[in-house]
Design a protein around this nucleic acid. Sequence first.
DNA 1: ATCACGACCTGGAGGC
DNA 2: TGCCTCCAGGTCGTGA
Length: 276
Amino acid sequence: MPELPEVETVRRTLAPAIGARVTAVAQSGKPLRLGRPMPFARIKKALLGRRITGVRRHGKYLLVDVEGDAALLVHLGMSGRFRLFPPGAPVPPHTHLRLTLDDGREIRFTDPRRFGLVELVARATEREHPALAVLGRDPLVEGIEGAWLHEQARRRDVSLKSFLLDQSVIAGVGNIYASEALWRVRIRPTRRARRLGATEARALAKAVRAVLEHALDRGGTSLRDFVDADGVEGDNYEYLKVYGREGEPCPRCRTAIRRTIIQGRATYFCPTCQVP
DNA sequence: ATCACGACCTGGAGGC
DNA sequence: TGCCTCCAGGTCGTGA
């Protein structure tokens, strides 16, 4: 479901929970990513009775800070939702974690496919967590520059599409925005990363930031699962230029958009104005 | 060490 | 209506 703009949208809409105290913690007991159960006992011990002091994001990961040194680490996988419900709201199916707040609201992690992740980390050492340790630069937090991107790309013998999806380089770009950014700079997704020129790298770095910021301004892209912490869908889908638009005319040159598979993921491009 | 692929899950859409 | 197949915003372990 979620790439950087969607996760950032959730982060922002979850902010009204800051200051509230956690009065109850409940779980489904179902395993999540890799069939691993969430460390519920540790989560409960660290969160119960504590106030939420912040909600942060790095790449596609969310961190919910509480009093003390603990933070709840959350990844939404493909179908995960992380929402703030009003008091008494019905509990949706596939709800794996519930944090009841002192005013009756509930933060709930819901994930039918269970590709998501919920962990507990110590803030002081959070970057040592395997999921966070490998993350590259977040385009909207740390920023990415053309020269840096060029240097990264030179050393990799993968397609540019795969390169953009590599979270150890850029943290937060996923399948939608990888196709969108490459369309903007008129480069085929199949182009080898090492063949990216310096000028192209500058344009690509700018395009990555632009597509992410544009989507964020629209509350993210809702294809099927995505809603913010208030349950509201984002309306960025109508602004996508190529993703999910096989057969539709390219907005630049009217050629039919093509769909191909790169590393097992659907990839969209214009065969005319995106150069190999 | 890098890289490509399949597995991990459930549910929705479309074909028959 | 029901059954089947395909597809999905991500990540990780495997084996070449």
